[in-house]
Amino acid sequence: MAETPIVRIGETLIVTLRGDLDDATVVSIEADVSREVERARATGTLIDVSGLLMVDSFIARVLARMAGMIRLLGSQVAVVGIQPAVAITLVELGVPMGHLDTALNAEQGLALLARLRADDARRA
């Protein structure tokens, strides 16, 4: 089981999901990510899924769950690098992903996080 890399840049965390994710892996990733968001006082988290070439409803739920968890910890979330086949599957599965903020790549994801932080501050 490969370790999930979590990189911290300033107040932003970058989490890279890849390969086969099973229940046990997912639980340990969730624990790692939430601990790291808390420890680093991250205001933005980027989840890079460009390494995921296939998804099922399980992974879709995991993504939604992870985003919810990170938001609860006070960080904005952007999912980047969703592959074409994955996007089609998610839409066909009908998993509600409307509340996920997405961007094409890490660079645009950082810009998106900046926008989300600004919106959040304005609302507050």
Partner: peptide
Amino acid sequence: LKTVQAATLMGA
């Protein structure tokens, strides 16, 4: 709409 949703998920 499905096409649009999928494009949105990719970030476009």
